[in-house]
């Protein structure tokens, strides 16, 4: 499949945004919520920025972006529609939380009403976290549900999308907490490293699967002949490349794919893991280490996402 930059940036940036939003939202239910409302507000705004930038990128992929609102309508059958709808719904609790925290930061409420509001914060935050998580789940399902692309139609596709989004969120969360001089609970850091390496493990299993996956049909069956008939191309249907070949016939050389896998492994999974572990033992390095970890992760994920598209073969390539 052709690796379209609009979709790569959308899934990486919005994925990180939804991950951060999910962490910020869900921590309101726990004792891990940072005491500083200002810090929470900043992380919330950053996650919304990441999400919005990603969504804007994704609309550049459309032939008619001005009709994008129509994509909310077919949630009964279409994972893309569900993703679009949930992306929109997520803004409601997120913006509500934004308003409440802003009000708390500029202290426009009496201390008594702030106490009352805090109950609502946990409720809205929880809903916000669930919406963010569900959106990422739908993103994964868009790809995982396509039977035409066996490399994506795999049980690990959605869990990997999901884990990578959460891990991006966790790393950004650790970075902001440490920059604002809040000591991040070591348990949270170790949990993040665990999630990161779990994602790495699943990605390795996925790459191994992609190397071996074959179509469940043969070229002969694609043109209506008996399964094992030898079929060779004789006359092309057209002399120059068409939409199908450009969009679905993208072919990446194995050599380049291996180099990129190597880069993605180090940048997205190994270096951030080491940075965080060093941060646990030397907490004064945590701000810079978590910053490097987050940057490396994003760079690595862009390579990982590029490969996700470039290495996936569509069944229509049997015709060419």
């Amino acid at each position: 499949m052709s690796p379209a930059y609009s979709i790569i940036f959308f899934t990486v940036f919005s994925g990180a945004g939804y991950g951060l939003l999910a962490i910020v939202g869900l921590t309101t239910l726990t004792s891990l919520l940072p005491d500083s409302t200002l810090l929470n507000l900043i992380m919330l705004i950053l996650s919304l920025l990441l999400i919005s930038v990603g969504l804007l990128f994704s609309t550049t992929h459309l032939g008619h972006p001005e009709r994008a609102w129509r994509a909310m309508s077919q949630w009964k059958t279409s994972w893309l529609s569900r993703e679009g709808l949930l992306a929109l719904i997520t803004y409601v609790p997120a913006l509500l939380l934004c308003v409440i925290w802003t009000a708390m930061v500029i202290q426009s409420f009496s201390p008594q009403s702030i106490n009352e509001l805090e109950n609502y914060v946990a409720l809205i935050g929880g809903v916000c976290g669930l919406c963010a998580i569900s959106t990422v789940f739908c993103t994964g399902q868009i790809y995982a549900s396509l039977k035409t692309i066996p490399a994506w139609n795999y049980f690990l596709t959605t869990p990997i999308f999901f884990l990578l989004s959460i891990v991006s969120g966790l790393l950004l969360w650790i970075f902001f907490n440490s920059v604002f001089s809040y000591k991040v609970n070591n348990f949270v850091v170790l949990f993040s490293v665990f999630m990161l390496e779990a994602a790495f493990l699943l990605k390795c299993v996925y790459w191994n699967f992609v190397d071996q996956v074959k179509f469940s049909v043969t070229k002969a069956e694609a043109i209506g002949l008996e399964k094992n008939t030898i079929v060779q191309n004789l006359e092309p249907a057209h002399q120059t490349q068409n939409y199908l070949m450009r969009e679905m016939g993208y072919n990446v050389a194995r050599k380049h794919a291996l180099k990129l896998r190597w880069f993605a492994s180090w940048a997205a999974f190994i270096i951030p893991g080491i940075c965080l572990l060093v941060g646990v033992t030397h907490s004064s390095y945590m701000p810079i280490n978590s910053f490097i970890a987050s940057l490396c992760l994003i760079a690595g994920l862009i390579a990982e996402r590029w490969l996700f598209f470039a290495e996936a073969k569509h069944v229509i390539t049997l015709y060419y």
Partner: peptide
């Protein structure tokens, strides 16, 4: 009139029956 040109249908078709018209965006 209502196609947004997201191209997902062409990904979902195993027969290559759909082609994207990028002049008209549909």
């Amino acid at each position: 009139e209502t196609c947004i040109g997201c191209k997902l249908c062409s990904w979902a078709c195993p027969y290559g029956a759909r082609e994207y018209d990028h002049k008209q965006g549909i």
